[in-house]
């Protein structure tokens, strides 16, 4: 038996942070309720929908290796698309998926253009840069979090991208994921399983999860 359960680290350090760490199912439910409120002519509903889903869209878009500036552009164009194409959303329960698919498609297009323009760019550079955090929380979190990060960051690039999208989405659409990642649709599930297995091994080696 190893020392810690990774969720203990999650619980300890997630206190006071954003709601994005919530399970996608509950985020999707809040998004649907907010979308319905907006449809019923409550403009606060739109604000709430943007508040609930923007952190998720940020994570999904950043999985495509876009700079902060381009990622923000993609998130914004997703929200403008919602306003313009609301009539195409028949099932309000699917609003979370509609938003993440729209964001992923735009992120994928943007990444293609960017790579043609600047093929030498290191798409993961920004993610490797240390983030500014408060001294207090950093001191408490550093050990556990650095180990978790090291384990995730040591995964192959394709695994990192796939797991990042899958982690933040609720039942992601495999067909669009397959196109984005250049993989056959049938291999998304098995690849996800292999990537999770690799992560599990890395966490066990780091002493962060029970065998």
């Amino acid at each position: 038996m190893a020392t810690a359960d990774p969720s203990a680290d999650v619980d300890a350090s997630a206190q006071g942070t954003r709601e994005v760490a919530d399970a996608p199912g509950s985020v999707w439910e809040r998004a649907t309720a907010a979308f319905d409120r907006w449809l019923a002519d409550d403009e606060e509903g739109l604000s709430e929908l943007v508040g609930v889903m923007t952190p998720v869209l940020w994570q999904v878009v950043r999985a495509y290796g876009l700079s902060h500036e381009l990622a923000e552009d993609v998130v914004q164009s997703t929200w403008l698309a919602l306003v313009r194409r609301q009539s195409s959303i028949i099932d309000s329960a699917a609003i979370g998926g509609w938003l993440t698919i729209t964001a992923r498609r735009e992120a994928w297009r943007t990444a293609q253009v960017q790579h043609r323009a600047d093929p030498t760019q290191d798409e993961d550079l920004a993610v490797h840069l240390p983030q500014q955090r408060s001294a207090e929380s950093a001191a408490v979190e550093r050990d556990g979090q650095d180990r978790l990060w090291a384990a995730v960051n040591a995964l192959p690039e394709r695994c990192r991208r796939l797991l990042r999208v899958v982690a933040f989405e609720h039942r992601p659409d495999y067909a669009t994921l397959a196109v984005d990642l250049g993989m056959p649709v049938g291999s998304i599930g098995p690849t996800r399983g292999r990537c999770l297995a690799k992560l599990r091994v890395a966490l066990i080696e780091a002493g962060d999860v029970d065998e």
Binding site: P6, W149, R164
Partner: peptide
């Protein structure tokens, strides 16, 4: 595991 992934990217 997916919770760990969410957590590290969020942080």
């Amino acid at each position: 595991l997916l919770e760990v992934v969410r957590h590290v990217y969020d942080a």
